[in-house]
Amino acid sequence: MLNFTANLSLLFTEVALIDRFSAAKQAGFNAVEIQFPYELSAAAIKGKLDEYDLKLVLFNVDAADLLQGGEGLACVPEKCNQFRLAVAQTVDYAELLKPEAINVLPGRCLDKSRLEHYLKTFKENLCFAIEAFSPLGIKTVFEAVNTHDMPGFIVHSESQMLSVLAELNRPELFMQYDIYHMQMMGEKSEKFIAEHADKIGHIQFADCPGRGQPGTGRTDFNRMFSVIEKSGYSGWIGAEYKPVGTTLESLNWLTPYAST
């Protein structure tokens, strides 16, 4: 059985974030995720989750300027204090909202001569995050992001994710596997998920290229979802795409799974 979440940062943007919880429920979702929930108070989010009987599965540690073309927080040596403050903020939200996983975005290195220093900083900060989230019973995840959309992103391949996992060797740490990003990098997502499902803490998807809903690109999602279902992966699958048309018009892919 596949369990899907609506990513409220990209879906239902026809309405304000506070109103997307009801929109997701009405569309058939029982769980949601948010990239960065911090424009709303944790109490306001909790109220909406309770009102609509929704589970908040995942959100990210704040990444500062990452989405505006900057390097983010988690890998930048000069921003370690800022990252720790962001983790503290995340803990405050997590204590009330109780997500299953929290994502730490590795970030970018825009000066290639500093890449090794940035990677070292990211791993140290990832361990700091694990220590903060683990006592709450929350998994820490991190993801690879394609370098076409985000040039300089320091973790951008399946092999890099596996390497970080092996080096840190923490049972509370998992990969967040984003099918869109890995398809953009030419990775073999079906094979990887089948072989490494036990190391994946969360999956997200969008079609490739374009990052639209299934059916707008070249990814065979009937086959992809079948692979995930057979892989033994039992976590949530986040619909994190940019709808072509309205969000409701983009949800035809969900119909076969509506009963789940």
Rank of each mutant, 00 (worst) to 15 (best):
residue 99 P to S: 15
residue 99 P to A: 15
residue 100 E to W: 05
residue 101 A to E: 08
residue 106 P to C: 10
residue 106 P to I: 12
residue 108 R to S: 14
residue 112 K to D: 15
residue 113 S to A: 14
residue 117 H to I: 05
residue 119 L to H: 12
residue 120 K to L: 10
residue 121 T to R: 00
residue 124 E to A: 12
residue 125 N to C: 07
residue 128 F to P: 00
residue 129 A to T: 06
residue 129 A to Q: 04
residue 138 I to G: 12
residue 142 F to R: 05
residue 144 A to C: 08
residue 144 A to N: 00
residue 145 V to Y: 02
residue 148 H to D: 10
residue 149 D to V: 01
residue 153 F to E: 12
residue 154 I to D: 07
residue 158 E to G: 03
residue 158 E to L: 11
residue 162 L to S: 06
residue 162 L to N: 09
residue 163 S to Y: 06
residue 166 A to P: 01
residue 167 E to H: 07
residue 169 N to E: 09
residue 170 R to H: 13
residue 170 R to A: 11
residue 175 M to P: 01
residue 176 Q to L: 10
residue 178 D to Q: 06
residue 180 Y to K: 07
residue 180 Y to W: 13
residue 180 Y to T: 04
residue 181 H to I: 04
residue 182 M to E: 05
residue 183 Q to N: 14
residue 186 G to C: 08
residue 190 E to P: 00
residue 190 E to C: 09
residue 193 I to S: 04
residue 193 I to G: 07
residue 197 A to H: 13
residue 201 G to I: 03
residue 202 H to G: 01
residue 205 F to Y: 13
residue 209 P to A: 04
residue 210 G to M: 02
residue 217 G to N: 01
residue 219 T to P: 00
residue 219 T to I: 14
residue 219 T to D: 00
residue 222 N to A: 10
residue 222 N to H: 11
residue 227 V to W: 01
residue 227 V to C: 13
residue 228 I to N: 00
residue 230 K to A: 14
residue 232 G to C: 06
residue 234 S to E: 14
residue 235 G to H: 00
residue 235 G to F: 00
residue 239 A to W: 01
residue 242 K to M: 12
residue 244 V to D: 03
